[in-house]
Design a protein around this nucleic acid. Structure first.
Length: 189
DNA sequence: ACCGGGATGTTCT
DNA sequence: GAACATCCCGGTG
C-alpha cells in the first residue's frame, strides 16, 4: 500500500530509517530503498535549507510527502522525500536502491552501468535509472504525481539499521544521519 | 583494488 | 567567482 501523508509529516531523522526497505516506483521502474540520509533546516549546516528558503529549496520547506529534486555538479539530479510539517525545512535523500523491476528501462537510462548492481548505487545514479529529473520536483508522492510513489510491501525495515555520518558534505559531516541496510550489496560508494 | 582528476552548469555570495 | 548532498574514466599496483 502507498505511504500516506502522516508517515512523512515527522522529523526526517525518524522517517529516514523507516524508509529502508520501502519500494520506490517511477513509471515502470521499481527499486527497494537501502540507503538514505536525513537533512534538516536552520540547525543543519549540511542542508540546502541551512541559510533559509531560496527559489531552489522552496519545495523542501513545503508540505511533506513531496519530491525535492535538485541539480548538482552541472550534470546530476538527486531525489529527496520532503518531511516534517508544512513550513519546516526537512527531507530525506534517497542514496541507493536494489533494482526490482523495469531493469531494461534502467539499463537504457544508465548506459555507463557495467552491471545491474551499479544501476542504482548512488543518489544521482538511482535518479537517472528511474528517469527522475527536474520535471519531478514538487511531485506529490501521496497522489502518485508523475507516476512516482512510495509503497510499503510489508517488508519491515531492518531491526538494527546501519548508521554513519553523511557522505560528500563539507559541512555537517559530523552528524550521523545516514542509515542503510547492513550488508546490502547495493549500497553507494 | 585503489586513487586522482576532469566534466559541466546552476545557484548563491 | 566559488562551491557543489556526484560520477566516470584512466592510471597504477
Amino acid at each position: 500500500m502507498r505511504l500516506q501523508r502522516e508517515f512523512y509529516a515527522r522529523d526526517p531523522r525518524r522517517v529516514a530509517p523507516e524508509l529502508l526497505n520501502k519500494v520506490l516506483v517511477a513509471g515502470t521502474c521499481r527499486g527497494r530503498i537501502v540507503e538514505v540520509e536525513a537533512y534538516a533546516g536552520a540547525d543543519d549546516p549540511g542542508s540546502h535549507g541551512y541559510r533559509g528558503m531560496t527559489p531552489r529549496t522552496e519545495v523542501m520547506f513545503g508540505p511533506p510527502g513531496r519530491l525535492y529534486v535538485y541539480f548538482t555538479y552541472g550534470m546530476h539530479w538527486c531525489a529527496n522525500v520532503v518531511c516534517g510539517p508544512d513550513g519546516e525545512c526537512a527531507a530525506v535523500l534517497l542514496r541507493a536502491l536494489t533494482p526490482l523491476a523495469g531493469l531494461e528501462e534502467m539499463r537504457k537510462q544508465r548506459p555507463a552501468a557495467r552491471q545491474d548492481r551499479d544501476l542504482c548505487r548512488g543518489p544521482a545514479k538511482l535518479a537517472a535509472a528511474l528517469g527522475i529529473d527536474g520535471a519531478a520536483n514538487g511531485a506529490d508522492l501521496v497522489a502518485a504525481d508523475a507516476g512516482i510513489e512510495l509503497l510499503d510491501d510489508k517488508t519491515a525495515p531492518p531491526a538494527k539499521p546501519g548508521r554513519s555520518v553523511r557522505i560528500g558534505l563539507s559541512a555537517g559531516d559530523d552528524l550521523p544521519w545516514r542509515w542503510y541496510v547492513p550488508g546490502c550489496v547495493d549500497l553507494s560508494r
